[in-house]
Amino acid sequence: MNTDPAPTDTAGRGAPLYRERLSPSLWTLLSAAVAAPMVSLVFVPLDATVALVAGLAVAVALVGSLVLASPVIEVRDGQLRVGRAHIPVGMLGDAIGVSGDDAREARGPGLSRSAWHLLRGGIDPVVRVRVVDERDPVDEWVFSTRTPDRVIAAIRRAQRA
């Protein structure tokens, strides 16, 4: 890892060039919310108010935890952060965004076993970024994103800074 101070962007120190939360799809959130009526049914014999409160509490807890636990993609202070992993943008090479059949290939048979990846179901586009550090056993990062062009542009801006 590089110990030099990370370059900053023109928006000010610490302001992200790009930030995206890979939140679950609407169908996943609705599926989690279906637990509320089931929990309510369990508590109906005790009291209708208790059942309603318990059902709502479970729904809010499930949906909230799904959203808050979602990984974040961020380019900030000369670093690319994907989930909990991060790498200086100076150690990154070419980045390409793929979608459709090319993305299916990148997520499946085309995924190198020496690649680091964070893939989310329901998010089709994928960004592939080559790692140019010879000491790093990972040769590329492959991760899902809804806006691959914006991620790639932010990485390039951070590399120029």
Rank of each mutant, 00 (worst) to 15 (best):
E105H: 08
S31D: 12
I155F: 04
V129Q: 03
S112F: 01
G78I: 02
V34R: 14
A57W: 12
V44S: 13
D101M: 00
I87S: 03
T8H: 15
V58M: 05
A59Q: 13
E140M: 03
R19S: 14
L62I: 11
I152L: 03
D94G: 09
N2D: 15
Q79H: 09
L111H: 01
D77W: 01
V44L: 14
L68M: 13
M38Y: 15
P71V: 06
R130P: 04
L46F: 11
R146S: 13
T49A: 11
E20Y: 09
G83Y: 00
P148H: 05
I87C: 02
L119M: 02
V127F: 04
A36L: 08
A6L: 06
E20N: 03
G122C: 05
F143A: 00
L68D: 10
D47G: 01
R13Y: 15
A85W: 14
V67N: 13
D77I: 04
D4R: 11
W116Q: 02
P45A: 03
P37G: 07
R113V: 07
S40H: 11
R128G: 03
L46N: 07
A154S: 01
L66Q: 13
V67D: 08
A154E: 04
R157K: 11
A161M: 11
D102L: 01
L80F: 04
D101Y: 03
L29Q: 11
E74C: 08
A85R: 14
V58N: 11
D133T: 06
V151A: 03
S31V: 08
V72K: 13
E134G: 08
L26A: 11
A106P: 04
G121M: 07
P109F: 11
A54N: 10
S25K: 02
R81C: 08
T147E: 14
G108W: 04
L22S: 09
L80I: 07
A33K: 10
R120V: 06
S65F: 00
S70V: 10
V129P: 00
V151D: 07
S99N: 02
R19Y: 06
S70H: 15
D136N: 01
L26K: 02
N2R: 12
A36T: 10
V89M: 01
G12D: 10
V75G: 07
S23F: 15
R76G: 03
L92P: 04
D124Y: 06
R113A: 07
A15I: 15
